[in-house]
Design a protein around this nucleic acid. Structure first.
Lengths: 261, 261
DNA sequence: CAGTGGTCTAGACCACGGG
DNA sequence: CCGTGGTCTAGACCACTGC
């Protein structure tokens, strides 16, 4: 009884009290993930405004019928995503920034899985060749090993946007030209059971050569955005090495960073 | 007894067996973090080669005198850093890529906290002005609110590399010109107790105007790398908005991405 | 089938921050 | 001081993988 009155006395009213959570213990999706999704929905939907306290973890776990570590795991995943902030002695609150929708790092796909408009891809080249020294080094293969070389031209609204040149170990998969024109390379890799895990990128700029200008419908000397990337699968094996050239007048990289202390 | 023999029978010999771990329960640094650091050192030092299995978590926790969740937390932190991979039914192994040293995302600081060479910074401007519409929007302030505007020229080896223009809420802190020339803006922010948490960046390219060319010792029309960034502190409040211009001939962004499924 | 990581529980004590 | 998150324990059962 003393316990109960103490709890009700100290229980802080939070915006979370009004939110209903539906947890399905029979679902194959983990409880902490269900909770995280519903918390995220509450934040995105405005039920939890920026700066709102979440209320302490113990009360929340009691209310939800979960253990505290499980609740913590859910909250932690949102902290990792940058949606929540924890403060010792204070509580957990919703982050203040308004713009946080595309917080998932998408820059890996920015140029491959497009939003909205209708991008088209023309495959200029798709064949197997011996690896050059540079490609071999990037892919961790011996020089001369067979690699698939891919050259593509990407357009949006009929206008060229980017020239993409990629190299992959030939043993990895067969790339169908028709499929490549219909979808992105990364989708094909994923469909082949290859899950990307990390990538190393270098982004620079330079002036267009005459050939590049002709290909991209620019004038010679126009500013181009360049990117070279090596992507690794979840075991750390190099899977793809690409050299991309973008028309700076029609493309920019847009991404978010999370600083992990 | 049966237990013991069973365990020794099933215990897999791993490269980890040879590694000595020293855990200090009296230390203020958490056990899981001590373990993570020592595991990382073992990997970086080569005691654990790429592809090596770590051995199961239960055995490891017994050997270290820790609970399994604690060991898991240590391992998870290295998985998050991209050093380890977990596979159900298989085990935890060291990732294959050789190049993983600068896996911490450093691109936020690439241009502000330099490596090696001796960069110098010349402060061209450091004053308080009313916020323009664009700056006010980026910083979440009313238009006309006082902001500190900062213009700097960065050189390495005596050659200009970048022109940096930054805006900060004037209420945030006082920026000492002398200190700005001696260290980076982000170091000053950190020293003032402001911890950066996330940032939104846009990277593009364009041709130099005559004025930009003169400032950066380029020729008019030369390719420039541009970057605009808004940085947020750990509560999600905008802290800084910058527009930077880099000489593409002397600078490129180099960074790593981790794909979180 | 046996071994692995994946998830979850029900407690405990500590360190920090604010009133 | 008290409430918060931060850390840690000692178990449990499940799902997936590979043989």
């Amino acid at each position: 009884m003393a316990r109960t009155s103490a709890r009700s006395r100290t229980a802080t009213v939070t915006a979370l009290d009004a939110v209903h959570f539906a947890l399905d213990r029979g679902s194959p999706v983990p409880l902490y993930h269900q909770l995280a999704q519903q918390l995220e929905a509450a934040i995105e939907g405005g039920a939890l405004a920026p700066g709102n306290l979440l209320g302490n973890e113990v009360d929340l776990s009691v209310r939800l019928g979960l253990s505290r570590p499980t609740v913590r795991q859910a909250i932690q995943s949102l902290v990792d995503k940058g949606l929540l902030v924890r403060r010792r002695g204070v509580g957990t609150q919703v982050v203040h920034s308004k713009v946080r929708r595309p917080l998932e790092l998408s820059s890996l796909y920015d140029d491959l899985e497009e939003a909205g408009q209708g991008p088209t891809t023309e495959v200029l080249r798709n064949e197997t060749v011996p690896a050059s020294a540079e490609v071999a080094a990037a892919l961790g293969l011996p020089e001369g090993a067979p690699v698939t070389v891919l050259e593509r031209l990407r357009r949006t609204h009929g206008q060229p946007v980017a020239y993409l040149c990629n190299h992959l170990p030939a043993s990895l998969l067969d790339l169908d030209t028709a499929r490549l024109e219909a979808t992105g390379l990364y989708r094909l890799l994923r469909a082949a059971g290859i899950t990307l895990h990390s990538a190393h990128q270098t982004v620079g700029a330079r002036s267009a050569t005459a050939a590049e200008a002709a290909l991209l419908d620019e004038t010679k000397g126009a500013a181009l955005l360049t990117m070279t990337r090596t992507a690794y699968d979840d075991t750390g094996r190099p899977v793809e090495h690409g050299t991309h050239i973008y028309r700076a007048s029609r493309y920019a990289f847009d991404f978010r960073l999370l600083v992990r202390p």
